[in-house]
Design a protein around this nucleic acid. Structure first.
Length: 744
DNA sequence: GACCTGCTGCGGCGTG
């Protein structure tokens, strides 16, 4: 492409902000052969090039958001050069930073703008070069920025002295998390160091209510954030929910001499799902979301063997967080190349970030974790005008006389239907909010002390709480928090009152694991013929001779080297799906449970259900009617009383703790509470709850055995920890209202 | 009944 005739001039688009870009940037756009700027790129130019306000750019995956931010930013940087870093890009993944580095380098090359990347895999030589002559754009992770504060605390002010922009990629991935809270604190600390505001640009997938994202980007002034949205809108969606009956063990047909762990170690139910996946997906490119790493391994192994049986080259590869980077990148590259059929069986690893190109369809095996994540997964399919295709596979147990009520009510199927209905109305869960994040406050306080060598309590409160991201922590709470950290030797105080690192604090800060706000477990490394396949939690019982499925293949343990935490494997004909550590706390939203009730009470049959799923839905509704659940929400079945609050996990959890506090023995079965005893006792306890008003969270959390879930929670005073726990996992108002509803 | 992300300094060794 040598010339740029005006007929294909990108400036020909309607609103015409193109001319505001630097001439050299305009030329770069032409040389890319772009006919016109994408919508988001067009609307982003004016607010970013002015360089005074915070902006959120929201659009679907692969809509050119990065360029939307950097065309105007580079236009400013090309004008003149400063003697320090002029723009920081913060990304959640090293792989994403590497991707963006390649893309930006092409743009910046002709503009004379330096581009640096800084994360754990970047050599010390490159890092030293930036420190020596800081300039241009810096691409960095939150953890590496944290390390800069601690290691280069005194040099930061000059390193960033002419900083004009901070870009945050995948903003939605940070909201509501410890890591996001750390990021907010780092952004604030950059501004404190420079003694001025630096405009922020957040790049995000479309979130329903963007005001939350705006408030996250600029705490306390979210209403001033400029929102630029260019959602191409929902295209056509082809949807199917396939129902399967899981056979009970005695109903399974077993060949003589075979047990359940027979030739391939799988019950037939997974075969049914696997057979349909194989038949439907083979020969094309698709993503299969299987919810857990264990299920990813199970289906990847099953589908690979189906390829072998059909004498085809393997088309199915696993992808999850415990697989080695090498294996994951191979799988990603194979899919992206489009040279042969490739299907990836994955966890949440492929929901965001890495670009593998659009796929023919999405398969979801099992209940999706949330409507929001289902939507994100769906976004991977159906680009370029074609329809998005989603197949949901759901197994429900074959019923017997002793089947538990949730099975009889087909709750997994009904929850999935409810979530699909909500997806179709364009609703999805807002990101979490309301936590205090004391664990991350521990980290940020220690980091602040390390950065400056010491800090006054009042200054720390002002920097982190008053004007920082921990605004919900009062002065009184902060003093109490400091005392707790002092007792645990994280802090000490000099004679003039300056806070210093204590014996334990010093030790924590000097470990490199300190830079991450989240915790990680020690793991074994799995090695076959000198090649690292990935890792497994260290508490796994592994012995020589143990059979294992990993990386979608079958292995036998050859040796376990405890000192080096290495497990050597050799190929084997048999295998067993490994158990991975799991500590998940559920998070089903109120709205999903309300919709489930509507699905039970309604009589419409969604068109996307296959014949088996329709049968299962009919069974669910028959059970619902038989128990009279449209009129009442508390029933007795055998020795158990079942309570149906039709509310989210926070309400269910709060009710369970309230009933426990009244001396009852309670078990939570997803949406249902199962209580031992007489219905009158349960009703009495609920009436007591209603009479007393919303329960006090402090009273309920005394029944929670382990509230220390986040990295530094062990250092946080118990009462503050209880408040954080309540803010995250309980809903006292909702539980009180639910108790009233249940009794009606 | 879950999932994901990240990381420094330094000693020891081999190679140019």
């Amino acid at each position: 492409m040598s010339s740029h005739p005006s007929s294909s001039d990108p400036s020909g688009s309607a609103s015409g902000s193109f001319h505001r870009l630097h001439p050299k940037v305009q030329r770069w756009v032409w040389t890319q052969g772009w006919k016109e700027l994408r919508g988001i790129q067009e609307v982003a130019i004016a607010p970013i090039i002015e360089g005074t306000q915070d902006v959120i750019l929201s659009a679907s995956t692969a809509s050119g958001k990065t360029e939307a931010a950097f065309l105007p930013i580079c236009s400013r940087l090309a004008e003149d050069s400063g003697g320090s870093v002029r723009a920081i890009y913060i990304g959640p993944l090293k792989a994403l930073i590497n991707d963006q580095f390649e893309r930006l380098d092409g743009l910046c090359d002709g503009l004379g703008i330096a581009v640096h990347r800084w994360h754990g895999d970047v050599s010390q030589g490159h890092k030293a070069r930036l420190l020596k002559s800081p300039a241009g754009i810096l691409l960095i992770t939150p953890e590496s920025l944290e390390a800069l504060f601690i290691r280069q605390g005194s040099a930061l002010a000059s390193l960033f002295s002419s900083l004009e922009h901070i870009v945050i990629d995948e903003l939605h991935a940070f909201i509501g998390t410890e890591r996001g809270c750390q990021l907010q604190s780092l952004l604030h600390r950059v501004e404190l160091t420079l003694r001025r505001n630096v405009p922020r640009v957040g790049l995000s997938a479309t979130l329903g209510d963007m005001t939350l994202a705006a408030e996250f980007l600029r705490p306390g002034a979210g209403e001033k954030v400029r929102l630029c949205n260019s959602d191409s809108g929902g295209g056509e969606l082809l949807l199917q929910l396939r129902g399967y009956r899981k056979r009970t063990p005695d109903a399974r047909r077993l060949a003589p001499g075979e047990d359940e762990e027979s030739s391939d170690g799988l019950p037939e139910d997974e075969h049914d799902v696997g057979a349909h996946l194989f038949k439907t997906l083979r020969g094309t490119h698709n993503l299969v979301f299987a919810n857990s790493r264990a299920n990813v391994e199970l289906y990847a192994d099953l589908l690979r063997r189906m390829c072998e049986q059909a004498q085809l080259p393997n088309e199915f590869f696993p992808h999850h967080g415990n697989l080695s980077k090498e294996l994951r990148e191979e799988a990603e590259a194979a899919l992206k190349a489009r040279q042969r059929p490739v299907n990836l069986v994955c966890t949440t690893t492929l929901e965001m970030g890495i670009d593998v190109g659009a796929v023919q369809s999405i398969a979801q095996v099992g209940v999706p974790p949330s409507v929001a994540s289902l939507r994100q997964r769906l976004g991977r399919s159906g680009r370029k005008g074609g329809p998005a295709v989603l197949r949901l596979y759901l197994q429900e147990a074959e019923l017997t006389k002793t089947s538990p009520l949730p099975d009889q009510l087909r709750m997994r199927l009904v929850q999935s239907v409810a979530m699909l209905e909500l997806l179709l109305t364009n609703w999805f869960e807002p990101p979490a909010s309301g936590a205090f994040h004391f664990s991350t406050l521990v980290q940020q306080l220690l980091s602040l002390i390390a950065q400056h060598g010491g800090v006054k309590a009042g200054e720390a409160f002002s920097a982190l709480c008053q004007a920082g991201p921990f605004a919900r922590v009062s002065r009184e709470d902060f003093v109490h928090f400091l005392r707790g950290l002092g007792q645990r030797e994280l802090l000490s105080q000099s004679s003039d009152g300056t806070l210093l690192l204590g014996r334990v604090g010093e030790r924590i800060v000097n470990q490199y694991s300190f830079y991450a706000a989240f915790a990680s477990v020690e793991e074994f490394r799995l090695v076959a013929s000198g090649r690292t396949l990935g890792t497994m939690p260290i508490d796994q019982p592994l012995f020589v001779g143990t059979y294992l499925i990993f990386g979608g293949r079958r292995w036998r343990v050859l040796a376990v080297q405890g000192d080096e935490k290495v497990v050597e494997l050799e190929p084997a004909p048999a295998g067993r799906v490994p158990m991975f550590e799991s500590t998940g706390v559920g998070g089903v939203h109120d709205r999903v449970r309300e919709q489930m009730r509507a699905v039970y009470a309604g009589d419409g049959i969604p068109r996307y259900l296959d014949a088996r799923a329709q049968e299962l839905l009919a069974e669910a509704r028959a059970t619902f009617q038989r128990w009279g659940l449209s009129e009442r929400s508390i029933i007795t079945s055998g020795r158990e009383v079942h309570v149906f609050p039709w509310a989210g996990d926070a309400v269910v959890h709060t009710l369970a703790l309230s009933l426990q506090a009244s001396g009852l023995s309670v078990e939570t079965l997803g949406a249902v509470l199962s209580v031992e005893g007489m219905q009158s006792d349960v009703e009495g306890a609920l009436r007591g709850l209603v009479a007393e008003g919303p329960p006090r969270a402090e009273a309920l959390t005394t029944h929670v055995a382990n509230m220390a879930l986040e990295k530094h929670d062990g250092f946080v005073p118990e009462d503050l920890l209880a408040r954080d726990y309540a803010a995250r996992y309980l809903d006292v108002q909702g539980a009180w209202r639910a108790a009233q509803r249940v009794l009606q």
